[in-house]
Amino acid sequence: MLYALMGIGLSIITGVLNIPNFAHGALFALGAYFLVTLIQLLGNFWLALLLAPLGVGVIGIVIEYGGIRPLYRAGHDYQLLLTFGLSLIVTEGIIIVWSPVGMSQLPPPILRGGVDLGITIYPRYRLFVMAAAALLVLGAWLFLERTRYGAIMRAGIEDKEMVSLLGIDIHRLFTAAFALGCVLAGIAGALTAPIRGLNPWMGVDMLGIAFVVVALAGLGNLLGSIVAGLLVGVAQSLVALVWPEASVAVIFGVMTVVLLVRPQGLFGIR
């Protein structure tokens, strides 16, 4: 489910803005660190969980405005260089601000411990994360399918010139899309913190997986990225049971095959 969140966030960014956002993993980590600091400041897990992703969104707006906007016509190489540079800056910034030593965040008391599901014990917090992520994904889906903004965003992926001809400020659309993608990365990071703990490089693994999800879904296929995110998660845990060393290799293998055979993605129609 978290993969779906990361995937959909990156999918919006790659789809609407057509840039490879290498800073996505670092923003994920930033969401987790914001969560911990806000909990320390406010003493409230839920409020922190709400505010941390918004903080990441604000950073996202700054990045889009100051860095990415001049680059829409610059070619992927410079976009790559910029977003990679930003991810270095964010990661090193985390080290300077919070220290390189990993940190720990417990789930709120009512979500600690495991629940016996009959077949297996499962942690309460993970159940909560699944439910929350499912709700968010559903929310994102409704937003994209049923609202005017969602429609504009989808149209922006299909045909940017048409959208701007219709009198919609394309720059505002881009900023909004980038910020939304960042917020989703921030939520995923914040939700992950109690499961995996925090360290400045926590986003690196996630970045790779997010790209796999996007590739499987097809660039800019937002709904596909939800399904692909779930698929990757399930596939990875299944492979981990039988052949743990290969769990990462397998998903990249699948990504390669999909890119070769069905570049429009598993769920692409184009």
């Binding site: 720990s104 600690r112 495991g114 499962y122 942690p123």
Partner: peptide, 16 residues
């Protein structure tokens, strides 16, 4: 290192 820390956290999360 981090493998141990992450594993210990997960074992706790599962209520073991």
């Amino acid at each position: 290192g981090l493998d141990a820390v992450t594993g210990a956290r997960e074992i706790f999360n599962f209520g073991l």
